[in-house]
């Protein structure tokens, strides 16, 4: 699967842009947190698309955002 680029994203209807990002992010997040992947992806999709694109290219930034999201999620559920 070819990498998702800003121009590919911009070519998609606004409503589908988060969907496209989610489809790319979910498998990466699932590898880190199999049970919480859906919720974490849902949380991260609230972030700006440009930052989400960056996270797709940068495992480090993805990991750090995922850990942040897990902490928020656990605090929320507590």
């Amino acid at each position: 699967q070819e990498p998702l680029t800003a121009s590919m994203l911009a070519a998609a209807p606004l409503k589908e842009q988060k969907q496209l990002l989610g489809e790319r992010l979910y498998p990466l997040i699932q590898a880190l947190h199999p049970t919480l992947a859906g919720k974490i992806t849902g949380m991260l999709l609230e972030i700006d698309n440009s930052e989400l694109l960056h996270m797709l290219e940068s495992p480090e930034s993805l990991h750090s955002k995922v850990e942040e999201a897990v902490a928020v999620l656990q605090a929320h559920q507590a």
Binding site: Q19, G22, L25, K39, T41, G42, L73
Partner: peptide
Amino acid sequence: NSNINWPPEFCPGVPWKGLQNI
């Protein structure tokens, strides 16, 4: 407008409704 269901869960292959439900 309870936040019990927050965050919305992303399911691959299912159209994302996201924040509409919050």
